[in-house]
Amino acid sequence: MLELRLVQGSLLKKVLEAIKDLVNDANFDCSSSGFSLQAMDSSHVALVALLLRAEGFEHYRCDRNTSMGMNLGNMSKMLKCAGNDDIITIKGDDGSDTVTFMFESPTQDKIADFEMKLMDIDSEHLGIPEAEYQAIVTMPSSEFARICKDLASIGDTVVISVTKEGVKFSTRGDIGTANIVLRQNTTVDKPEDATVIEMNEPVSLTFALRYMNSFTKATSLSNTVKISLSSELPVVVEYKIAEMGYVRFYLAPKIEE
């Protein structure tokens, strides 16, 4: 039996909106430590890893490790029926082929149950070891979304280069080229407005903008985004979920041959 009560139900709604276009079906894994998911897009170019720690739930009961296969489009349809202020409880019984989402209004005057069919999903699970990155850029998530959107109107790929000068986002397309350089800026009123560049070595990598733009659907989850780059690894684009965990997107680079 599992019962996970999330007072800030809007977080789960936002998580689904952030990942449902990238991944169709996924197994949600529930253990004593938390509620998590790892899934790749259909072309295996991108991967999403979600963690919602048990401590972030008001009530968290998970008697044994469980994996629940869900169609994220259908899950999103159900969660859209929850109000933004609603408390969401996820309930499941051992061996059941359904999961129940319960939505409670903050004043407890409206309570709704939505039962969704589970599915058997044969998904590959990748081992992602901790890694040292050549450069880590932390910046306002809205600024990153703006840059990805702007560059996608010019070209299909973005080159992200980190040097001691700053971080440069470049693209080229039929109509011309674009370069956007951000310098480290920590003299801001609010810490979430800062751009922080930690660089061990200069690095330059090329990525498909279509995926980057998909990742920015997580923008509402966090004021900041952390971009970790290494020449031998996929980029990691991480949105922290306040006090609870994170959504991390991994994207394999394009390589010149």
């Binding site: 295996h44 170019v45 991967l47 081992g127 394999a252 680079p253 394009k254 390589i255 010149e256 041959e257």
Partner: peptide
């Protein structure tokens, strides 16, 4: 030409 790498080029399945 530009080659799009996949997740399997970097990480092992388990």
């Amino acid at each position: 030409s530009v080659l799009q790498k996949s997740m399997f080029d970097f990480y092992q399945e388990y």
